[in-house]
Amino acid sequence: MAQTLRLEIVTPSETALSEDVDYVGLPAAAGEMGIYPNHVPFVTEVAAGEVAFQQKSKTVFMAIGAGFVQIMPDRISILTDMAINEDHIDEERAEEARKRAEARLSEQLNEEEMAVVQAALANSLAQLKVKRRRHRG
């Protein structure tokens, strides 16, 4: 029986994370999901948002973009466009990106641009959410 989970977060440009963890919380398309070791094999979409995982007693947060997750009893693989560790999030830049994206949403856009802007907005919001949580706690 596996006692820990191997959490992998991969993006087209890098493997953002590959570590053994005890618990993972992630934003599945149907709602937040919490996963412990020995979960039943499962595949679903993930929305842009926040991944939280516990290692021993420490909880780490990461911001991820939209993508997919494949869950195995001893392994979780997240396939996404973006993944940034909490410490690497530049709040100002994310805030700027959010403002930029929101400003563009009010312009006249075609569908394709709209989708791109919305993805950018979701990404920056995810980063901000992760960053700001730390200030509160």
Binding site: A29, A30, V40, P41, V43, T44, G67, F68, Q70, L79
Partner: peptide, 27 residues
């Protein structure tokens, strides 16, 4: 080696495959 594993899908396999296709194309 992983073909033997039976996965559960949410909402269902076809739905996931459907939303995976655009990603596949992007890539």
């Amino acid at each position: 080696s992983q073909d033997a594993t039976e996965f559960l899908y949410e909402p269902d396999a076809a739905g996931v495959l459907g939303s995976l296709l655009p990603h596949y194309l992007n890539y």
